[in-house]
Simulated assay, not measured.
Amino acid sequence: MQRRLIASVLLGHYLSAFTALGIPLFMPRILADLAPDAPAWSIGVLFVLPTLCTALAAPLWGHFADRHGCRLSLLRAHAGLFAGFLLAGFSPSLELFVLALIIQGGFGGAMAASNAYLATQLAEGELSRTLNWTQYSARLALISGPILLGLLTAQGLGIELYRYLAWLPLLAFALILPLPADTPQHKPGTATAPGRLAELPADLLRLLGVQFLFSFAMVVTLPYFIPYGESLGLANDALIGLLYSLPHLVYLLALPWAQRQSANTLVAGLLLLALGNALQFFCDQAQWLFALRLLSGAGMLLGFVGLHRCLSQRRRQGVAGRLFGWFDASGKWAGTSAGLAAGLASQHYGNASPFLVACVAACAALLLARPLVLLSRELPA
């Protein structure tokens, strides 16, 4: 029963992640069809709008999950994504399309909802491993989504892609519907129990700070990776795309090995991530880039595995929704901030500068993470 539950949640998360993460890459083409006179800066605004809405809404949905049930909140996340994509697919104007993106982000959030539901069903050790697999499904969606959707856009499909993709989160909804419901810790409509906020981990802010800086360090180098590769003399788009995807491929291929490590790998992961970004900043020869991307991928993998272990050890009954809601919101705020920082850094200091920014962020995360890991040794694995 537990295997079926985990498989259903992971498959549902992959379907929603494929939907949400695969389409933004093609926003310029979709916007050109919908509103050809829209200014160029609107592409960036529409690109981050769902993420920004998710960041704002995630803590509220976490509170909803704790009061009404995490499975119900997960069903809401898949249904919200379905509604947002269906509306986007039939939008006749830019204004309605913007509303659809707001619905997609504000009522979505399948990652946090999936993890919160799993936290109500699994023991701590199993939860830590399963959190790594939800991240695995997101990485798989990041790689497979752009490739498969690129094949469809090559056939001339534009905004109608949204209406076709909408059926994937609806399928995810159907997968979750028969799963057992969790029991909220207090009945809806009653006052919050005294000390409920105290049940959140005491070092929650430190955990969220590490999540923010870690996510920021990973995302800030992505928006301008193509011009960075071209500045090193790479003219083949396929090769640049491969190098772009290498860290995600490391995660997909090496996760089973990383999960077998008994020690918390967060500090080692942040060290490798900082080193990989520093070396990419100073790199002036393209032939070194393959090895450096593998190094960054190893840092990302070990960082995620260690951070998920810290997160699962701080799970508390009755506040899983809020814990994972705040955790997801921290990552979404990091992604939004990283996009802005990448633009400013690249504009003023060159296409390699985001790697230096990422190195600084990883080093700052390292300073916060060490006490987090030391305390984690006193908690159950």
Rank of each mutant, 00 (worst) to 15 (best):
A138K: 01
A110N: 14
D203E: 09
L5V: 01
L356S: 13
P180F: 07
L292V: 05
Y228D: 03
A38G: 07
A20C: 15
R29P: 02
T134E: 09
L366P: 09
Q185E: 12
E124K: 12
G339S: 12
F327Y: 14
G331C: 08
P50L: 05
H308C: 06
A88N: 08
A32P: 05
S114G: 12
A100C: 07
Q317G: 01
R3F: 06
L249K: 02
T221K: 08
L10A: 12
R370L: 00
D237V: 14
A202Y: 09
H63K: 14
L168Y: 13
M111E: 13
E124S: 10
G303C: 15
D33I: 06
V45H: 00
E230W: 00
L367S: 06
F97L: 05
V319N: 13
E124R: 15
W133K: 14
A35C: 04
L375Q: 09
L148D: 10
A141V: 04
L177V: 04
F281I: 01
V219L: 04
V98P: 06
L344G: 02
L295I: 02
A40W: 14
I147L: 15
L122E: 15
G125L: 06
L168G: 00
L243I: 05
R29A: 10
L200N: 04
Q155S: 09
A352T: 12
P371N: 01
G109R: 11
G106P: 10
F47V: 08
C283D: 10
Y117D: 03
A320I: 01
A263M: 09
L11P: 05
L56I: 11
Q104F: 13
L46Y: 13
R71T: 00
G276V: 00
P256Q: 15
A55S: 04
F18L: 11
W288S: 00
G321E: 07
Y164V: 03
T130I: 06
Q280T: 06
I30W: 06
G297S: 15
G343C: 07
L21M: 14
H68I: 13
L374K: 04
A286M: 14
V267D: 01
L207E: 11
Q317F: 11
L5Q: 06
T192S: 12
L205A: 09
T336A: 08
Q104M: 14
F290W: 02
L207R: 07
L275R: 11
N264G: 12
V267M: 03
A254V: 05
D37F: 09
T54A: 11
A65L: 13
R139M: 10
L52C: 14
S296G: 15
I176K: 10
S8C: 09
L101V: 10
W288H: 03
H68A: 05
R316Y: 03
Y228Q: 09
L75W: 08
L252T: 05
R314I: 03
